[in-house]
Design a binder for these strands. Structure first.
Lengths: 242, 242
DNA sequence: TGTACATCAGTGAACGCGCGTTCACTGATGTAC
DNA sequence: TGTACATCAGTGAACGCGCGTTCACTGATGTAC
């Protein structure tokens, strides 16, 4: 098959057409992202996106296989930008005291969430009914957590983790012990259960805080979310031993 | 106005008609609740509910003013059952050690959430686009948190709060200090900033954990969510001083 | 450099479906005298 | 106890709107020789 000669290369040459195609697909995704705000994920409409771009609705199918595929693209993009921001914060602060790095990473996450609250909701809010995220979303989804864990890993291997004074609340169940072992594995984290338990708690705490902030659960109680978030991030870090 | 004579009483006599009316409204709400699971809050459809009840769609308007009013009814009912469960746990364990009460209350919340995940999502997940919860939902919404706080209040007034050994992570910002003052007020809680900060952290942690569990964020890491939740609840309690 | 052909982008109509809400209406059930 | 009237439950049709997806088609843009 002569046509496979071109196809078998790793596509180094992008024709003008291919480039234009990628561009339009990008515009479609960007427009869809903007539409999330108004209608939410379950209200996301291919027709509305097409309308806004001045195309007829059927034309969108040249660029996107279905509504669900569009949703998947949005999710992956969101996870990637969030992960990137967290990774940047961690890389930027290499060499700084672990506590500073932790706070910076947490802040980067919060900033992203406040800039793109509807994408935050897409990732960490109610699952979209009838939509099952495909496996390709898993890897991008772990980037944030891995970035956070990296701070702890660096601190641990540099011997900068100070043992927590009050070890009162160590996990008791073997099930939790196993979960921590898994975290130790995927996070390549050579630390004790106390540290790992703190990491897991911090992780859930951090996103719990953000969900409360963005979904309006703390209205009337917490006014300055940024300040409270900082204080909370500090408390998490101290629990971990940073 | 002669008709006001009946109307001005506090409605002690419910006519058969009024009773039937309330019954049907209850069926509508119950059916809507069941529909949440399949379509989610934003996909909740008056027509689908009517269909399931064997009525024509316009008949529903005898019982419910609009789709949004139905949503509001669902939210209030959900908050109330959740609040009731937490209050029951707290009342049932009166006299027990504060730590036991805390764990029982937390477990009650988790059990409710696992029994009614879609109602949990309605309350603590992504806000429904285009829907603004009316003020009547606020009071029922605070019942859970008040029940949790009551455990701490009882422990404090009985002198059963042990001072936390590691006070490392006290909130630093005045903004957080103010938030804690508000919590002290609404929770009628005579305790120091360290305790109140712990309560606020525990509150966000608890729901952060549940959201991760129910929305599938901990898939592949935590397997036995009940056990992990217990361990986490214990850690929260120890931070508070219970 | 020029021509023949293949590929792709975008159109427009259609299918079949769903939704919330309004309105004039029929019958049944209550209420007042 | 019986009758006249008011109230309410539920019907069925309609309005105006939206959606995802398919399909046969027209033109433009690329590619191979």
């Amino acid at each position: 098959m002569s046509s496979s000669i071109r196809g078998s290369r790793s596509e180094p040459i992008r024709t003008a057409r291919a480039r234009a195609h990628a561009d339009v697909r990008g515009e479609i995704i960007a427009t869809a992202r903007a539409h999330l705000a108004a209608a939410g994920a379950s209200g996301l409409s291919l027709r509305a996106v097409a309308r806004e771009l001045g195309m007829v609705s059927s034309a969108v199918y040249r660029y996107v296989a279905s509504r669900d595929e569009l949703l998947t693209a949005l999710i992956i993009e969101a996870y990637d930008t969030l992960g990137q921001r967290a990774e940047d914060a961690v890389a930027r602060t290499a060499g700084s005291p672990p506590l500073d790095r932790w706070i910076e990473a947490a802040r980067a996450i919060r900033e992203w969430a406040n800039e793109r609250p509807h994408e935050y909701a897409l990732l960490y809010g109610t699952p979209v009914p009838g939509y099952a995220a495909p496996p390709d979303t898993v890897a991008p989804g772990t980037r944030v957590s891995i970035a956070l864990v990296a701070v702890v890993r660096d601190a641990a291997s540099a011997g900068l983790l100070h043992r927590n004074a009050a070890e009162a609340a160590l996990p008791a169940s073997s099930a939790t012990h196993e979960a921590l072992a898994r975290l130790r594995d995927v996070g390549d984290l050579d630390a004790g259960d106390d540290v790992l338990f703190g990491v897991l708690l911090a992780w859930t705490q951090l996103f719990g805080l953000l969900s409360f902030e963005l979904f309006g659960q703390t209205r009337g109680l917490v006014e300055d979310h940024a300040a409270f978030f900082d204080d909370a991030a500090l408390a998490m870090a101290s629990r971990i031993g940073l």
